[in-house]
Simulated assay, not measured.
Amino acid sequence: MKKEWIDIMKQTKRLKLSRWQTLDHFFIVLFILFIPGLTLFSLFEIYVTETYDGVRTANELISTTWPWIIPAIAFYFIQKRRLRFREVKVEYTDHEFQEAIERTAKEYEWQIEFNNDQIFRAYRPWNWTGSWGEMITIIKDKDRLLLNSICDPNKWSSVASFGWNRRNIDTFLKNLVDVKKGIPIQEKIEKPEKEWTFKKVIIRLFAYPFCLFLIGIGFYAIFNPVNWKTPLAGIGAMTIAAIYLYTDLKMIIKNKSTNAQHRL
């Protein structure tokens, strides 16, 4: 990592990524904009090249496309916010810092990329927890720490860590406090995560029907194409729905299995 990057991150309190990492981090925005992109191409054919062969008018194309812009904008700001560092004012020695790192890395199987007097960087690998893995960055700056955890931008694009980003940071800070207080390492009993909380139920009541709606629209677009762009739009809608349903159902099944093992 370039030294000037560290200085920039200290000043902006925002994680700096390479170009490819930035593309991966914001890929969900580009993915959602795929269908509006097809519409833009159709509008170009209507008003510029006059080669449009579809049946919808320009106003109809715009009216059925603008709802995709809203989630794209929402995800852009969500992903941008995730690049912010969490600032914690704390006094610590290098020994205390390294001991907290060792405890957390052992517990979460962090793979350390570099660890020097200015910055720490590690990756938590994928382990069937619903997340592809996370990238953890900690910047040391006098009497404060700047901490950030995002979905690993070096792997397949992901927008959900299923709580691991928060867990990475919270666990390290807890370990640092324990080290400063002289509290020895305690054996932790994994508590099964509740998958049917009120918040998750409400989200699924809206998300599942919407995903089924996208799948239905996708099938209709594939088998009743208006032009060559219609099947592509259908495939895009079905892919968005399938990714969410797959990851969410996988977490439900995994946690159900974990809960059953805890009851034995």
Rank of each mutant, 00 (worst) to 15 (best):
G163E: 12
I185F: 04
K155L: 15
T171P: 01
I183R: 02
F172I: 15
P184A: 10
E190A: 14
N175D: 05
A160H: 09
P192F: 10
I189V: 14
K155S: 11
P192R: 07
G182N: 04
G163C: 11
E187Y: 04
V159R: 01
G163H: 12
D178Q: 06
R166F: 10
N165H: 13
D170V: 06
K155V: 15
F162N: 06
L173S: 01
S158N: 14
P184H: 05
N165C: 14
R167A: 15
A160I: 10
F172L: 10
G163F: 13
V177S: 10
V179F: 00
S158H: 08
K180Q: 12
S158T: 09
F162C: 08
K188D: 14
K155Y: 14
V159S: 07
G182Q: 05
P192S: 12
N175A: 02
D170R: 02
G182H: 02
L173R: 00
K155T: 15
N175S: 03
N175R: 01
N165R: 14
W156C: 08
L176A: 02
A160P: 04
G163D: 14
I183G: 04
W156Y: 09
P192Q: 08
T171A: 09
D178K: 01
V179D: 01
S161T: 13
I169P: 05
V159A: 05
N175V: 02
P192W: 10
F162I: 07
K181Y: 03
R167W: 13
V177W: 03
K191Q: 14
K181C: 00
I169M: 12
I189Q: 08
S157T: 15
K174H: 10
T171H: 09
N154Y: 06
S161P: 06
K155H: 11
K180P: 12
I189C: 06
W164N: 13
I183T: 12
R167T: 15
N175T: 00
K191P: 07
R167D: 15
V177F: 06
K188H: 12
D178P: 02
L176N: 04
I185V: 07
E190D: 09
R167C: 12
K180I: 12
V179A: 01
R166K: 06
W156M: 14
T171D: 10
S161N: 08
I169S: 01
E187Q: 10
K155C: 13
K155P: 07
S158D: 13
Q186T: 12
P184W: 05
G182L: 02
F172Y: 11
R166M: 08
K155F: 14
P192N: 11
N175H: 09
D170L: 03
V159N: 06
D170H: 04
S158F: 04
